[in-house]
Design a protein around this nucleic acid. Structure first.
Lengths: 229, 229
DNA sequence: TTTTATTAATGTTGATTTTACACTTACTAA
DNA sequence: TTAGTAAGTGTAAAATCAACATTAATAAAA
């Protein structure tokens, strides 16, 4: 008798994505200006509804792809939000995901079409519904992840300087780090390849460029560790 | 126009609870034998459907209360599970919660009526749907929580011995801990009150009983720390 | 009453990790 | 040639962690 759940209430299930990027200005999130009611014209996370034949992870991937054109992005489920009136239209439960992307890689055109914009974490506008809370939650999770997994591959360009990596960690943890201690800790992880090439933008002397050593990096991703920065 | 979501699919939303307890045999979970189809007679987590006028946290509290009679229990949301056919009856997304309870406190009668039973983590039976995965996930989360928050208040009786606390941590982390190092680390947190009273069950000498210093304990709960055990 | 058996309680030391800290180098542009 | 700028590098003191064994208290048995 496959109808024993008939008395239970069905609800809408949404997925909202907190998309993190990083550039010289610091940690950023990608937001869109809603072009439908309610709250048309207000800023919002990127979201959508779960489809009947879709799992949550795929819905998150679909939504990210719709607004950025990106594939194969690191995403992680965060939390389900269920306040009764969180969405005034209909009872909607939202499951949030966060994604880490290389800010240079997204599709500019899509971003424009959707009235999307990157905002620094610090001066992001007020968001609709409970999206502010979702963002705060995502930042906490990202900070935690930083302490047990290496980070950077997803948020930095292919080639990057030590300073960029340092500033990324500083942005995520929102605290200053000691340059020498940071470098020696990162080096002890052995996840970087030092290139012969230098980046000449930042100084006359130029600073060496690095890439991630993908094998080592992924090995570290598998086994949690504690990285005290 | 409050009908713009009309095209989206609605789904059933369930809540499943992983209920942890602890006694001299170690870490346990509370399971019930399902008395309805599908999978009648199989072991399962305690679950139920989200009601239209209810938030997820409250649904979890309600479900826990239904099966144990307990109120005011530490619970934390874990994860949303959404595989298409995870429940063969109808498309159901389940949000899992885990709870920590004092195993002595539950209502025996309720447990009996529902055919519920405590199982050691190690030899719990196979569970329906994706409930095994939920349990594994909950154990990982519990382990993590142990490393950044004090634990015990919720799982131990009011008065307990150092040995009990040690064994609780050993059960959660599933590794042996050095007794002296453990005691000095716990003492350095200053979250325990040592009583004049002794427990005479365990030895001829008797061992001192402790209670948690609620204020200090909750202060530590607020501020994450790292407890390397 | 003495002995025995059992678990509780307790501190130290060496090893490791973390933190704090400042000068020299390399290069370009003036 | 000089001046200016960020890059690159090492050490020592402090804190924390990990390993380890003996004595104390008591009840039960002899």
């Amino acid at each position: 008798m496959l109808n024993s759940y008939s008395s239970a209430d069905k609800v809408l299930l949404a997925v909202d994505c907190i998309i993190f990027g990083f550039d010289h200005q610091g940690l950023k999130i990608l937001l869109i200006k809603r072009d439908f009611e309610p709250e048309r014209g207000k800023w919002s996370l990127m979201g959508g509804f779960l489809k009947r034949d879709e799992i949550l992870d795929d819905a998150a991937i679909r939504i990210l792809n719709t607004y950025t054109g990106l594939h194969d992005i690191y995403m992680e489920q965060l939390h389900a939000y269920s306040e009764i009136d969180r969405d005034p239209v209909d009872r909607t439960i939202s499951v949030s995901y966060y994604a880490l992307i290389n800010i240079e890689n997204h599709n500019e055109e899509l971003i424009k079409n959707y009235h999307a914009e990157w905002f620094s974490i610090a001066d992001a506008p007020n968001l609709i519904f409970d999206h502010n809370e979702m963002v705060q939650h995502a930042i906490r999770r990202l900070r935690y992840r930083t302490s047990i997994k290496p980070i950077g591959f997803e948020l930095l360009p292919e080639k990057f300087t030590m300073r960029q990596l340092l500033e990324l960690y500083e942005a995520i943890l929102s605290k200053e780090l000691d340059k020498r201690n940071f470098i020696s800790k990162i080096n002890s992880l052995e996840i970087l390849n030092k290139l012969d090439e230098k980046d000449m933008q930042s100084s006359r002397k130029g600073s060496y460029l690095y890439t991630f050593n993908k094998e080592k990096y992924e090995e570290k991703l598998l086994n949690d560790f504690v990285l005290n920065l």
